[in-house]
Design a protein around this nucleic acid. Sequence first.
DNA 1: TGCGGAATTCAACGCATGTGGAATTCACTG
DNA 2: CAGTGAATTCCACATGCGTTGAATTCCGCA
Lengths: 201, 201
Amino acid sequence: MASEPGRRSGRRTGDTITRERITEAARRQFAEVGYDRTSLRSIAQEAGVDPTLVSHFYGSKAKLFVSVVELPFDPPEVLSRLLADDPATVGPRLAHFVLGVLESEHDRQRLVGLVRAAATEPEAARLVRDLVSREIFVPLTARISADHADLRASLLGSQLVGLVMARHIVQVEPLASSPPEAIAAIIGPLFQHLLTGKLEP
Amino acid sequence: MASEPGRRSGRRTGDTITRERITEAARRQFAEVGYDRTSLRSIAQEAGVDPTLVSHFYGSKAKLFVSVVELPFDPPEVLSRLLADDPATVGPRLAHFVLGVLESEHDRQRLVGLVRAAATEPEAARLVRDLVSREIFVPLTARISADHADLRASLLGSQLVGLVMARHIVQVEPLASSPPEAIAAIIGPLFQHLLTGKLEP
DNA sequence: TGCGGAATTCAACGCATGTGGAATTCACTG
DNA sequence: CAGTGAATTCCACATGCGTTGAATTCCGCA
């Protein structure tokens, strides 16, 4: 019998979906309150799971973070798409792409978590640095910019990090609640200038 | 005699400078590792002081933070200086001013600490928001911009937060080690465009 | 049907944190 | 020179953290 007794331990009956729920909870909390203020215990609670299960699956908090907050897109794919069309319109297209990513709740969580953590967690800062240096911007500027490719790339990265910080973390108005098309229309030309314009007039 | 016995407790002999040393240590650590990873104990240790003295002086960690990481300049003064000259050159002058502030170790620590903490500490985020909304940028754009003053202000703030993040926290190269004049020469015109240019072409 | 391994929980360790209260020592005023 | 008040320290608490090791339960395969 033991009619409906508090289940104590051991494997649960039914399909195993806890791993996914842990991932979701972790991603959400890393994005919302940052790396330090997210605890394995709070993740476990949100996922309805024992705290040690998180460690058991991912080994450590740092590994969990890296597994969970990876880029919500494939850098080579994005890069080749940007390079496929007219270089004279790459700025607006980049702006449109980024604002689009930020519209998806799921993808935004990853990016916001990454930027938020980059402020304190060196590993996250490294990820952001690589994104700027190796993955997208330097390859991009190397191909379509006349000069100062690396400097253009880092300025572009600075703009994007600033956008995420201001719009989604600090939440400065009216930037935070402006429609993505409006923002893309403004920063598109800025990106274009940083990519192909004359830097020092 | 008690020749050179380990002093145990009580007030120290000589002038009282511990308050200042606590302030300096706190400012340095908040800037270097962020709010969460700075502990009262580590501040106390760097200041050569008992941990509880920090609490005793400032009441709490949050109050200490607010006391210590305030703006390294006087907003009204900066604002009036920017407005005093030709509006057609305010972008470059603003860029020059900001890069100058970031050159002083002492002032940079305050700004970097503020931005770094804005990523996690809501109180710091509020300070940054106010800086953008109330203190400088909105008053500035309200006077010299034709339209969309608030939006221009938030975009300007986003650029500056991004600059601090990329250059001093994430440390993206070559932005991190470029001379301030070079950077100011590039972003000056960008600021000018955000301030007085036509936003959506 | 049995059995190995994966999933899940439990109990607990060691550590660091922020904070409070009580005690001690000094500077300063009268 | 007495005494008040501020500066400084020590002790201690409660809490939350990440991590470990062992125990329990279930799934899937032979």
